[in-house]
């Protein structure tokens, strides 16, 4: 099991290298001069030359790429143009806030999705089922940048139950976590329902029923466990949407995480910071997908063998 996990993590390295290359190329191959984008076209030639030197843009592309990769290996993401500090430090300082928000959102999503999905699958065709499907459809259609402000208007401004924005107490976490987690809850509810329904039609469930196993035990011990595979896969894939969603959620709630750092850096044209944030978020996503594969292998050894054979 450990070997499988390590093997799967090693397989993320080529993906990470490709992702890093893409981020590097984005700055260098885009039409137009990145220095113009950062400074505006009206700046002095000397200033532009200085920035070009600072960014290393005056060197050949291959040299720049080599230096970039070497830096990544040593954990060096470059220096912020605005603050002068190391990008890795800036990102590391914001990482706990984003991790806290993501984990809380994930908890919200799971806490909503499992009971709703299971209940819907247990009573297909009833109002409970239709209600959960409707809620799920609504959940994927409500954009977070609207849900967030609506929750603020209702719960923070109208009823004054929760703080409007910022980070500090657990109360600060509630609204951002719900905003970010709601969309994922909707997707997981649908997936759980569909997956459990499929398992309930299997022969082993009929056998268990014939042997007199209770309804709840069949649902939780047999159907849910086997239904978890696809749910975990979707969880891994949707984790990316969750991470990207932090950019918006952190902007709405003035949450001091990597997402806000990214948007601030974009507004200040602080390119090394933008690059660092994008890389770190992408790396988290790639690792999350690898973990989902490992968890799947643990849940179902058959898919583990398949995961070990497939790459990426």
């Amino acid at each position: 099991m450990l070997r499988l996990a390590l093997g799967r993590l090693v397989l993320t390295l080529p993906t990470m290298l490709a992702a890093a290359t893409l981020v590097f190329l984005m700055l260098h191959l885009v039409p137009g001069d990145p220095v113009d984008v950062m400074l505006g076209e009206s700046t002095q030639a000397a200033d532009r030359a200085a920035l070009r030197r600072t960014l290393g843009l005056d060197r050949p592309l291959a040299t720049q790429y080599g230096a970039f990769l070497l830096g990544l290996v040593r954990g060096d993401l470059g220096r912020s143009l605005v603050q002068g500090t190391a990008v890795a430090e800036l990102v590391a300082a914001r990482f706990p806030a984003t991790a806290e928000l993501t984990i809380a959102a994930l908890a919200v999503a799971l806490a909503l999705a499992f009971p709703l999905g299971l209940a819907a699958a247990a009573r297909p065709g009833t109002w409970l089922d239709r209600g959960s499907i409707g809620l799920a459809l609504l959940g994927v259609s409500v954009p977070s940048f609207w849900l967030g402000p609506m929750l603020i208007l209702l719960l923070s401004i109208h009823w004054r139950w929760l703080p409007v924005s910022g980070r500090g107490t657990w109360a600060h976490l509630v609204l951002p976590a719900c905003t970010l987690g709601f969309g994922m809850a909707a997707i997981l509810t649908r997936m759980t329902r569909a997956s459990v329904l499929e398992c309930l039609g299997e022969d082993y469930v009929r056998t268990a029923r014939a042997k007199g196993v209770g309804r709840l035990a069949i649902l939780t011990r047999h159907a849910l466990r086997n239904a978890l595979g696809p749910v975990v896969t979707i969880l891994g894939l949707q984790f990316g949407a969750l991470l990207a969603g932090t950019v918006i959620t952190e902007t709405i709630f003035a949450w001091p995480g990597i997402g806000r750092l990214l948007i601030d850096a974009i507004n200040q044209r602080d390119y090394p910071v933008v690059q660092g944030c994008v890389l770190v978020i992408a790396a988290c996503f790639v690792i999350a997908n690898a973990l989902a594969d490992v968890v799947n292998a643990w849940l179902d050894p058959r898919s583990g063998a398949a995961a070990a054979r497939s790459n990426g």
């Binding site: 993906t15 490709a18 992702a19 984005m26 949407a241």
Partner: peptide
């Protein structure tokens, strides 16, 4: 398919944010 895999290594919206920030 490898090209697809590389692009899928990024959360879609994040890549869109990065691209539009570079393109303007």
């Amino acid at each position: 398919m490898r090209a697809v895999d590389v692009l899928l290594a990024f959360p879609g919206l994040l890549l869109a944010i990065a691209l539009t920030s570079v393109l303007g």
